[in-house]
């Protein structure tokens, strides 16, 4: 897949935006400005941006409890996302969903999900719907290595394969399902390897290489769009933060996290590549980073200045016609 210089800069900017959003969310959570709990995807930006860069705005995406990056990459507005994190009326869900349930149906985002593996059956339905309506849309379901051990994954792969649905199953193998290492929990050691059982293509990709993700997911999406059926893509990545903010992370060493940041950071790797091929200059980088920081500040400001919902609004939005 050819990627122009402008597109590469756009990918870089998106990755910076996600990193800035997540770091700001961690900071605000630490200041008790975000109720509940949040799951951050710092370190996994290449997977989100590479995957969503090959989707159209009318393509469907289902994501997970660790979904902020996917949503931003698919086109969600950071201001309305922060407003939802703060539980305000201007949030995507008017404060009824929070971090784990943000959805933006106008951008094809069918929702994050509080249930690990909850997105698979829904995306099977979106795939069926695409086939029945006869459009050339594609559906992508993002999930972690933990979700690959749920029955919903296996049922969805089977059904997507027999119905030849236009879907791509994009696993972000970040090595840990909450506290449980994939090395322990994943029989066979590979999510993409499971594709063989369903007679569909499976690919394992360096998930911290945004262009590699873009290429492989791009091929799977093109295949699905042509009516050639579903695929599994497994992006090998690593999460820097705990499962949730505040996770004591007793299941891994600080050194392991530091080493990944030092040697395999998706943003740093792409930055070096862009500088090397002179797509990016130091001056341009500085401008981009300032632009992203300003946009995130503006988004936070929008969220914090938005009104709290009236308590009785809790009774609205249950039914179309009660």
């Amino acid at each position: 897949m050819r990627t122009t210089k402008t597109e590469k800069l756009r990918l870089f900017e998106k990755m910076l935006t996600i990193r800035a959003f997540e770091e700001k969310a961690a900071e605000l959570f630490g200041q008790n400005l975000i109720p509940g709990f949040i799951h951050l995807s710092i370190g996994e930006e290449a997977s989100a941006v590479g995957t969503c860069s090959v989707l159209r705005s009318d393509d469907y995406m289902a994501t997970t409890h660790r979904g902020h990056g996917h949503m931003l990459a698919k086109g969600a507005d950071p201001g309305r996302m922060f407003a939802e994190l703060f539980g305000r009326t201007t949030g995507y869900c008017k404060g009824k969903g929070g971090s784990m349930h943000i959805a933006d149906f106008s951008a094809g985002i069918l929702g994050a999900n509080g249930v690990v593996g909850g997105g698979f059956p829904i995306m099977v339905g979106a795939g069926l719907s695409i086939k029945l309506r006869g459009t050339d849309q594609v559906g992508v379901v993002l999930f972690g290595d933990g979700a690959a051990n749920r029955g919903t994954f296996h049922e969805a792969c089977n059904m997507a394969a027999i119905f030849n649905l236009p879907l791509v199953f994009v696993c972000e193998n970040n090595r840990f399902a909450s506290t449980t290492p994939a090395d322990f929990a994943l029989a066979g050691g590979s999510v993409s390897g499971r594709a063989a059982a369903y007679g569909i293509p499976g690919h394992s990709v360096d998930g911290n290489d945004v262009l590699a993700v873009r290429k492989v997911v791009g091929q799977a999406v093109a295949r699905a769009r042509k009516g050639q059926g579903p695929s599994i893509v497994e992006n090998q990545t690593y999460r820097y933060r705990g499962h949730f903010e505040g996770d004591p992370q007793k299941y891994r060493s600080e050194e392991e996290v530091k080493a990944s940041r030092r040697e395999n950071d998706p943003i740093e790797r792409f930055r070096e590549y862009l500088l090397r091929e002179k797509t990016l200059s130091a001056k341009r980088e500085k401008a981009l980073r300032e632009q992203v920081a300003a946009a995130i500040e503006k988004a936070v400001d929008f969220g914090l200045k938005s009104p709290e919902p009236h308590p009785a609004a809790a009774l609205e939005d249950l039914f179309v016609a009660p």
Partner: peptide
């Protein structure tokens, strides 16, 4: 197939996307 999770969840996903 005998796959109630995806039959019901599939119906849901279809309903969310216009069917």
């Amino acid at each position: 197939p005998i796959s109630e999770t995806c039959i019901v969840g599939g119906g849901l996903g279809a309903a969310m996307t216009g069917m």
